[in-house]
């Protein structure tokens, strides 16, 4: 099911200090998703916001929050699936985003999925647990620092010789991908779901 009324979880507002606007979106989330048994999202930071931070804004969100899962968590931990039959003949490195690592705590679920993808060569990213420098509005408010962090992350990615860097947060990938492109590298930033959706036919 894709509830058509869904919009944004309000992480942007909450993380920027706009608690009231975030609370309104949290209440909206509870209304739209309240009736479902399991809710899946491809963004670990949004999952972290809903599951870990919503209860401070709206107490009733705790009930719904416990049923929200990041994609790899749902597949590996909840459904016990680590082989989705994907095919992706590329050298891939994986960046564990800060929120997937320290807030949502998806553990090694994304890596277990990647290891089962046919044709995929998984290479370890040096200093993987170091933040890429995105940080929401930080990327714009503190652009110089953000870009300094990104430069180091891109250098780590390029050093692996991978042609693809994957992660479970679209926003970090937008930032990393934008850095890789600006630096003129051929490395692409792809969401885990895009890799898992690749098959031999397409």
């Amino acid at each position: 099911m894709f509830p058509a009324e869904q919009t944004c979880c309000g992480q942007l507002h909450l993380n920027s200090g706009y608690r009231d606007d975030a609370a309104a979106l949290a209440r909206r989330f509870v209304e739209v998703f309240g009736e479902y048994d399991a809710i899946v999202s491809p963004s670990s930071s949004c999952v972290g916001t809903v599951r870990e931070l919503y209860p401070q804004l709206v107490p009733e969100a705790a009930r719904v929050g416990a049923r929200v899962f990041e994609l790899s968590e749902l597949l590996v931990n909840e459904l016990g699936v680590d082989d989705v039959g994907a095919y992706f003949p590329h050298r891939v490195t994986y960046h564990p985003t800060c929120h997937s690592l320290r807030v949502t705590r998806v553990g090694d679920a994304p890596l277990r999925l990647l290891r089962k993808v046919r044709g995929l060569e998984l290479v370890e990213l040096p200093a993987a647990d170091e933040c890429c420098g995105f940080g929401g509005t930080f990327a714009v408010k503190n652009a110089d620092t953000s870009i300094a962090m990104l430069a180091d992350k891109c250098a780590s990615i390029v050093s692996t010789g991978a042609s693809v860097c994957s992660a479970v947060d679209g926003s970090c990938l937008l930032h990393i991908g934008g850095g890789l492109e600006r630096q003129g590298t051929e490395v692409r930033a792809l969401h885990l779901a895009e890799i898992l959706a690749s098959t031999e036919d397409a």
Binding site: D129, G135, F138, N142, M149
Partner: peptide, 25 residues
């Protein structure tokens, strides 16, 4: 309070468990 990406590395190492990201928010 905005000089942080909220990456949470500080909270993880704090010996007295100060939830720095929460206070930043």
């Amino acid at each position: 309070p905005y000089a942080s990406t909220l990456c949470g590395a500080c909270y993880e190492v704090c010996p007295v468990k100060i939830d720095i990201p929460a206070v930043l928010l």
